[in-house]
Amino acid sequence: MGDEKVERDQRAERIAEFIEPLRIEPGTRVRLAKDFDPGYKAGISKKKDGVELLRTGVELLADYQRRLAAQDTYGVLLCLQALDAAGKDGTIRHVMSGVNPQGVRVSSFKVPSDEELGHDFLWRYTRELPRRGEIGIFNRSHYEEVLVVRVHPENLLRQKLPDAARGPDVWERRYREINDWERHLSDNGFRIVKLFLNLSKEEQRSRFLKRIDVPERNWKFSSADIRERAHWDDYQRAFSQMLSETSTPWAPWYVVPADRKWFARVCAAAVLAHTLIDIDPRYPHVGAAARRELAEAERELKAEKKKHR
């Protein structure tokens, strides 16, 4: 048991060291283009080494997810934010490939419906939160409300806000409200993992061209992607301020280099594993009375087998 604990502690320390350069220290002023390299790969020179690391991470997640579900005390919310073609869907598919799908729920958020616009801006996200024992994934998240809505302020008009709520302080107020909401969730046993997949403009261009050139990928391309690309600089500023204002001790942001899909997936698995290791969920303890019931059930089942011989 002692050796197992030492190994677990060493593994946790290695993962913590690996993801530390990705973490945004609360209170840091982020300049995305200058502070983070989308091509960073932590000294891993070969893709096959990264694939092996991902396989190990997936196995680790599967183990901890079973414990999380059995303990039924904590929940985990994974928020993925990125520009188009950064690899959100692939990250979810690969990182969560080994877990029990019954314990994972993925929610994607499109243009809000009339019903959703009739409520406060966090309402539709609150409805999709994971239960205790679950891992919930937001493929895009409540941060759209300070990203897309900020880059396209006409969307703010559609949210039926009173005039006073659309003043110049609206973004600072939303940052505060998001931080308070996440603090509330954290205080109640829901851990929040926030990943920004940081893609370079050139790599996005390359991936868009592949979607156009390869017939099997045509369905993934939309002319809207090109229109959004025209707002690249606006999004970079919005992302930088979002990361600066909403990386908190209870819900820090991690900026994941996304120019290499395999490395982005390794990083995502590592951050999620770090969170689960920190929770350290345990299988429920079986008391003496329950053990007696198990022993009695075992005797009955064995006797049943003998009777049918």
Results as ranks from 00 to 15, higher is better:
Gly2Arg: 14
Arg8Leu: 14
Asp9Gln: 13
Ala16Asn: 09
Ile19Cys: 02
Pro21Val: 04
Arg23Leu: 06
Glu25Ile: 12
Glu25Pro: 00
Pro26Thr: 06
Arg29Leu: 12
Tyr40Asn: 02
Lys41Gly: 08
Lys47Gln: 14
Glu52Thr: 11
Glu52Gly: 10
Gly57Gln: 04
Val58Lys: 04
Val58Trp: 04
Glu59Pro: 00
Leu61Ser: 00
Ala62Asp: 12
Asp63Phe: 03
Arg66Ile: 02
Ala70Ile: 13
Tyr74Gly: 00
Val76Cys: 01
Leu80Pro: 03
Leu80Phe: 14
Ala86Gln: 02
Asp89Gln: 05
Thr91Ser: 14
Gly98Asp: 01
Val99Phe: 00
Pro101Arg: 07
Arg105Thr: 11
Leu117Gly: 01
Phe121Arg: 08
Phe121Glu: 10
Arg127Thr: 07
His142Ile: 12
Leu156Val: 12
Asp163Cys: 00
Val170Ile: 15
Ile178His: 02
Ile178Trp: 08
Asn179Gln: 01
Gly189Met: 03
Phe190Asp: 00
Lys201Ala: 15
Ser206Asp: 10
Arg207Leu: 10
Arg207Lys: 05
Lys210His: 11
Trp219Arg: 12
Lys220His: 11
Lys220Gly: 02
Phe221Lys: 02
Ser222Lys: 15
Ala224Leu: 12
Ala224Asn: 11
Asp225Glu: 12
Arg227Ile: 12
Glu228Val: 13
Trp232Phe: 11
Asp234Met: 07
Gln236Lys: 08
Gln241His: 13
Glu245Ala: 15
Ser247Glu: 09
Ser247Tyr: 09
Thr248Leu: 02
Pro249Glu: 08
Ala251Tyr: 05
Val256Met: 11
Trp262Asn: 00
Phe263Pro: 01
Ala264Leu: 06
Ala264Gly: 09
Arg265Met: 03
Val266Glu: 03
Cys267Trp: 04
Cys267Glu: 01
Ala269Gly: 04
Arg292His: 06
Leu294His: 03
Ala297Tyr: 05
Leu301Arg: 15
Glu304Tyr: 03
His308Ile: 11
